[in-house]
Design a protein around this nucleic acid. Sequence first.
DNA 1: TTGTAAGCGTTATCAT
DNA 2: ATGATAACGCTTACAA
Lengths: 352, 352
Amino acid sequence: MSTRRATIADVARSAGVSPSTASVVFSGKTPVSDATRRRVMDAAATLGYSGPDPRAASLRRGRSGIVGVVFQGPLGTAFLDPVIRLMMDGLADAVAPIDAGLLLLREGVEGDSPGASLTTAPIDAAVLVGCTPGMADSLATLRARGIPVVVVEGDAGPDVPRVILDNREAQRSLASHLRSLGHTDVALVTLPTSGQSDPGWIDERRRHEITVDVTRHRLDGVRDVYPDAPAYAATASSIDAGLAAGRAILGDAQQRPTAVLAQSDLLAAGVLRAAAECGLTVPDDLSVTGFDGIDVDGLAPSLLTTMVQPATEKGRAAGEAVVAMLAERDAPSVCFSSVFREGNTTAPPLGS
Amino acid sequence: MSTRRATIADVARSAGVSPSTASVVFSGKTPVSDATRRRVMDAAATLGYSGPDPRAASLRRGRSGIVGVVFQGPLGTAFLDPVIRLMMDGLADAVAPIDAGLLLLREGVEGDSPGASLTTAPIDAAVLVGCTPGMADSLATLRARGIPVVVVEGDAGPDVPRVILDNREAQRSLASHLRSLGHTDVALVTLPTSGQSDPGWIDERRRHEITVDVTRHRLDGVRDVYPDAPAYAATASSIDAGLAAGRAILGDAQQRPTAVLAQSDLLAAGVLRAAAECGLTVPDDLSVTGFDGIDVDGLAPSLLTTMVQPATEKGRAAGEAVVAMLAERDAPSVCFSSVFREGNTTAPPLGS
DNA sequence: TTGTAAGCGTTATCAT
DNA sequence: ATGATAACGCTTACAA
């Protein structure tokens, strides 16, 4: 019993066939006689050979079968967002046909690159998630390596296929819905305005410092209808962050809006809670809208009036773009539409 | 301008050095004179060479720098569990020093293996998450490939390092707490009893079909104190599943327990909601305990009485085990202890 | 259907 | 500090 693992050459020799034949038995790329196949498999079993070494195969093929998924924050944080989770499912689905795995990558930490994964990961393609401050760097790195990239919910220039949502229009629909109900005094809760941002009212200055596309576009959508609606930025897309924002918005009984537009369902759930704290009945005293159309665990029987976005589809589209690019085909950018869903959290303002 | 990408040999030639020297400039494994380094870097820049091809490097080195993380269900579902998310963070942390990436892998689908990722992924080690039905198969595959494995919350036999929790003892602490408060009539809500299971009461037969270690051990912990406590199995660890279970348990006003032990905080949050539906005040009319000690988004101001488990630490330990094994060192199994935390959801039963 | 041969791009070892 | 050389284990034209 030798110390080194058997190679396909060993198997071939032991089976009395050529290495190429043995290779083909495993890859199935060429017909092989049953007798030969059996001999090879037997030899493999005997030698404890469990198939071609993926490292060698990927060098030879020029492909690793791995797609990188690049996030900015801690992984656990990224997956807090239900939309991201759904997207991952769609992505996994779409790359399954080419048998690709998903490698979790964190965007280069600022300054140095200690664990320079982006520069050394054996990936065939990459999916950039979200429009992040470091995206430009990541993109440059990837491009230098000649690795195809697709961006989800971000803008990486004309040459990079993107998968996006009609954020502005969708958010505008929600605002229009409120206006048609008769609301004139609304406020909004936005997603974080930058990678690292404090909660608080968005003034003119801060308005111009919004680096997160999604946040800006949805804000614009509201402003299309309510140009002067005050906006409060949350620190994350979570119920707790929404609760905090809701308290800030609803705290002053003298100066309460009749409706709050939250930029995500999770935030809206928090606003709902804040409303309850303030003794407000939704939708009678206050209307609340969300965004995403996910199932917020534990929110029932409330059903948010929201825009349902095809999150899984977005991931699938990104995956399909990757597959296309790896097949040397063109990958078009795609923009998905969100669908209005009326729940039980919106109604005409009191006294209208 | 040739069509093929520059290799390290091209760079070396262009810089007037040997390939080995150029290689060393990039790997930093051996001192190189400043002048030489500069020449090589310049040549690389000129040729658009962005560093060694990871595929070739990994073949040569015998290492890919990738650690596989094996789940059973859809990725998005796995990440629903906050404990898993935290574990991923710890894991990512622990493998960062060896600059390893995390590859998401799904346990072989039943029967055939269409996208046979486990058999062909270029991974140096693998982390199996949870005790799943298919674990034995995955393990066999990995073992045949000679890939080191560590299991989190599962049992893969004596040779496989494991990272586990004192589930039974921890759950027993909670039960003891309730007993010491005076509760004699308790019920419990368990995690799913198998990969695919319906919700419902656990009878003697089903009791023996529990394939999920965590579920069984925590159940045992309760039974150590309350041998006859009825148990209701949830379909998932979520607020909604806990709500459903809570309704089943609390629905009959004539036959209500005075306390419910849920096997996860999310489930407990659902039970809390069910209690509210039934008009019960917690903890006066009903005591509820959780398990995990996570921050349930939106649960405040309720604070569950629960066992706080070091989820991130578990991931870190798994990562450290991987690092050890890759360094040919022994990786010990570790068992973490959970810490009792008294919240505001438990109290003596009414009239005691 | 099977065999021959030529790399894929690196890096480790051992000299110098 | 640098260079020559030999693998690493596999796949795929192409030939037979």
